[in-house]
């Protein structure tokens, strides 16, 4: 009982120290993901993109997170007028 409680406290402490760091690193990763997504979708968003043929084949791979992404970018609804997700 005592040992279990101590372990729980230990885990809580470990989590206390890890959480903000994990958050910072995850945020850095997300910023790069967002940029990547922007590059992949730029043609569809109306930004001329010399690599359009190659971004097209990446579209399916960034698709699943598209809704969360455009909301994060401050766009309430899908910016692709011919593709709806919400």
């Amino acid at each position: 009982m005592m040992a279990r409680r101590l372990r729980a406290i230990g885990e809580g402490l470990a989590e206390y120290y890890r959480a903000p760091y994990r958050q910072t690193l995850a945020r850095e990763a997300r910023e790069r993901d967002d940029l990547f997504r922007l590059l992949v979708l730029s043609e569809a968003l109306g930004v001329p993109n010399p690599a359009a043929p190659y971004t097209l084949e990446l579209m399916p791979l960034v698709w699943d997170d598209f809704h969360a992404w455009h909301q994060r970018m401050g766009m309430e609804h899908s910016p692709l007028d011919h593709i709806r997700c919400c």
């Binding site: 885990e11 470990a14 989590e15 890890r18 760091y21 994990r22 958050q23 690193l25 995850a26 850095e28 990763a29 790069r32 993901d33 940029l35 990547f36 590059l39 010399p50 690599a51 190659y54």
Partner: peptide
């Protein structure tokens, strides 16, 4: 050059995600 840029972006993002995962409980 373009794919290199994209790959560099992925390498960074993946590295940050991996480090974030290393810090998961």
């Amino acid at each position: 050059a373009w794919t290199d840029g994209m790959i560099a972006n992925r390498a960074e993002a993946d590295r940050f995600s991996a480090r974030a995962r290393d810090l998961a409980t």
